[in-house]
Design a protein around this nucleic acid. Sequence first.
RNA 1: GCGAUGUUGGUGAAGUGGUUAACACGGUAGAUUGUGGUUCUAUUAUGCGUCGGUUCGACUCCGAUACGUCGCC
Length: 378
Amino acid sequence: MKKEAIKFTIINTSSDTKARYAKMETPHGVVETPMFMPVGTLATVKFLSPEELYTIGSQVILSNTYHCWLRPGHEIIKAAGGLHKFMNYNKPMLTDSGGFQVFSLAKIRDIKEEGVYFKNHLNGDALFLSPELSIQIQNDLGADIIMSFDECVPFPATYDYVKDSVERTLRWAKRGQEAHMRDDQALFGIVQGGKYSDLREYCAKELVKMNFPGYSIGGTSVGEDKPTMYQMVEDGIRYLPIDKPRYLMGVGTVDAIFAGVERGIDMFDCVLPTRIARHGTAMTSMGRINLRNKQYEADFTALDPACDCECCLKYTKAYLRHLIKCNEGLGMRLLSIHNLRFLLHLMEEIRTSIKEDRFLELKETYYKKLDLGKEKAY
RNA sequence: GCGAUGUUGGUGAAGUGGUUAACACGGUAGAUUGUGGUUCUAUUAUGCGUCGGUUCGACUCCGAUACGUCGCC
């Protein structure tokens, strides 16, 4: 029996929802869930140093197999002593398998049983990525949590297409599990199945038979509406073991995070806060603020008075607007710090609310404050 | 003073005797969900120096005038 890389312990469970507060021990320390994981695709959370990430309360960050494979190459990172040493980040890390990138970046791709043939997005070189290679690269990168190589099916997709895809993703999960060589890395399985409840159920149940140390819900946030997405989460989560972490991939809006936690999700990641930061949008306790808007030209007040981040404590909206309008890196950096801090703080509040068994109350407060609900997104 | 030439939006500028004046930048908004640091979408001149004329119709042709640029005395 393999030694488990992570140990997940539920501390409190919400009495009226499926939300839970837990601790997860990893080779690089203990983290608390539910949590939001900043995305650092190219072995960096764009613009932020590890120290800044610690300061804003980041626990786990993501990096990416596909991107690190292309640049600088997994051999380089392995030679550096792994991702942690390479980028000087000493908290837990997670790498995505590259499955999503094949879906999102490659214009030309050919999905076969053995893997995916595609042309890379940098120079068009013909490449081949398989479950075994993805795991091997992830073994070399050395993140605490690694992901199964899956197919993220487009939305919408026909039942027959999704069915075949799910079965292939399951075979790939098995192959990945067999290729996985390190017991200090936890390999998560990914539940796919599109919007089809029975396929989600089938996928979840089959993955559970393979006994992964954690599971994620994949294939959401690809164009479906909110109710559909929540249904997808429920359809998969229902069959997952209660005592293993659940990770909802690619989700990072406030409303979806509340909806996910309410349904028993422990981990989230999303590029949204950092991407919109680079384009001048801030997530604040008053809702989204687009700093490019003229109304902030001479607004010398703090971005979010309720926030304790460097950006909000030391700079004004007028200055941030100026930086963003001029395409200055400092503006992107400060807004990235802020948006991540906003979500990390939100997760802190969520964890506390679960501990104190008032999760729904917190959710109501946020929904009212941000005017969320139904189709209103944040 | 004489000759040549030019005057189109916030900017750089296309353009044709005939419905809505190209394009780019800038401006103003919006988007962004297992990363696009430089992305995408929408919108942005009721007007082509001014005044007359020719014409069914003129930013486009003609004349005058203002201003600019170059050359000559």
